[in-house]
């Protein structure tokens, strides 16, 4: 198990390295030149200082050398300066990462148990009333656009009822925890609604299949009650295929909550990466995208470990 984990971490580092090369190449293929952007924004720059800036940014240096310079600095923790925030990339990305992780963890903590509960309930009597209601909810969750749901929730809970703030981040510099939670409620609700629908569908399908399997019949023939059969026998087996779905969803959530972040004014990873690419902020975009890769790699590794923990037939040797 330990050996397997170490091998997998080694592989992840390898993938990450390859990704640095690919991303570096891709970003350099992007149209637009950061120095041009800077010059446009600041006409008072002289030609001499423009040349100096160009040199600083490595113009005229061949791509492989630039890559080498960048990667050697990056592994030492120097990610360079962000050209749109005029601050070190690490300082910019740190809080954004924090915001995104808060949103993601809260969304997961809410949606996984909810999906297990709703999916299992729906699977008990496929085609029954409960199943139809839950399926309706799941389809609504899948098909309601994020921005629309966000706006509706803001109108209802922030504007009309005034119960919750409309923004995702408190204005205070050092807000107390309860205030932060209050601000997170609406964006987390929207993200949960977005995340839970497909999960419910998967749990339901997986549970229906598991409940019709031979070993569930065996469990019935032993005289176990339905709750015992579902909790002790069916659920764990049904969970196994869910792990992949969760891991994939997690990666998507990391950089894919752009709309929600924008509407609720949360400066998270989705918005950060989007802005960085839009305004040709090389350094920020590179590290942001690499972080997204890293999260996907980590969630896949966790998924594999979870597989081995859930399913004794898989041995991670």
């Amino acid at each position: 198990m330990l050996r397997y984990t170490l091998t997998r971490i080694g592989q992840a580092v390898l993938v990450l390295l390859v990704m640095t090369v690919l991303l570096f190449l891709l970003i350099n293929l992007m149209p637009g030149d950061p120095v041009d952007n800077m010059l446009e924004g600041n006409p008072s720059l002289t030609a001499a200082s423009a040349a100096q800036i160009r040199e600083l940014y490595g113009a005229g240096v061949p791509l492989p050398v630039r890559y080498w310079n960048w990667i050697t600095a990056a592994v030492q923790g120097d990610f360079g300066y962000s050209s749109i925030y005029f601050r070190p990339v690490a300082e910019v990305l740190g809080p954004a990462l924090g915001q995104t992780l808060k949103l993601m963890v809260a969304t997961l903590v809410l949606s996984v148990p909810l999906a297990l509960l709703l999916g299992s309930l729906a699977s008990l009597r496929p085609g029954g009333l409960m199943d139809n209601l839950i399926s309706f909810f799941a389809f609504a969750s899948i098909s309601l656009p994020n921005f629309w749901l966000s706006l509706i929730l803001i109108i209802v809970f922030a504007v009309q009822l005034g119960w919750l703030p409309a923004s995702g981040t408190p204005l205070e510099t050092n807000p107390p925890i309860w205030l932060e939670v209050r601000h997170l409620v609406l964006p987390v609700l929207v993200l949960t609604m977005f995340f839970v629908g497909p999960l419910v569908r998967y749990v339901r399908a997986s549970m229906i299949e598991t409940l019709s399997s031979d070993f569930v019949r065996t469990a019935r023939s032993k005289g176990l009650s339905e709750p015992q059969i579902i909790i002790r026998h069916a659920l764990r087996n049904a969970l196994i295929p869910m792990v992949t779905v969760l891991a994939l969803g997690f990666g998507g959530l990391f950089s894919g909550s752009l709309v929600v972040e924008t509407i609720f004014g949360v400066l998270g990873m989705g918005k950060m990466i989007f802005d960085a690419i839009r305004y040709v902020d090389f350094n920020l975009a590179l590290i942001g995208l690499l972080l997204a890769t890293l999260v996907t790699l980590i969630s896949n590794l966790l998924a594999d470990l979870a597989y081995a923990w859930l399913d004794p037939r898989i041995s991670l040797k």
């Binding site: 070993f215 065996t218 026998h233 764990r236 087996n237 196994i240």
Partner: peptide, 8 residues
Amino acid sequence: MTAMNPVM
């Protein structure tokens, strides 16, 4: 092969 719970 299938009559027993594989994860128990």
